[in-house]
């Protein structure tokens, strides 16, 4: 082992070295109503489009897009944290599904 490496291992063991560097990441969280849950808002908007002449509109459902910027050192870490945020606050899993995209 090179000296530099040995120092690094030792330093890490003693907690002297900073953790892997964090960077700002961007994520998108999509929250959508579960299949089978009525979406009166989506229905009203769909009907409006239909009455405007867009007869090809057969079904329309409305969800939420949440954009988040957050600091993290790994993509995997971000994903786990975002999942936790969705489970605890961003989605109500009784009626909603969520999907996370990290840029």
């Amino acid at each position: 082992m090179e000296r530099a490496d040995r120092v690094g291992v030792k330093a890490r063991q003693h907690g002297c070295l900073a953790p892997k560097q964090e960077k700002l990441m961007k994520a998108k969280v999509y929250v959508t109503l579960k299949k089978g849950v009525l979406d009166p808002q989506g229905k009203a908007v769909g009907n409006a489009l239909e009455s405007m002449g867009y007869h090809e509109v057969k079904n329309l459902r409305i969800g939420k897009l949440i954009e988040i910027e957050l600091n993290s050192s790994s993509k995997e870490g971000v994903e786990n944290r975002l999942k936790e945020m969705c489970e605890r606050l961003l989605a109500n899993t009784v009626i909603e599904d969520y999907r996370v995209e990290i840029e």
Partner: peptide, 10 residues
């Protein structure tokens, strides 16, 4: 249990 959603007629 459950959840209170937007009213049927909005």
């Amino acid at each position: 249990p459950g959840v209170l959603m937007r009213n049927r007629d909005l």
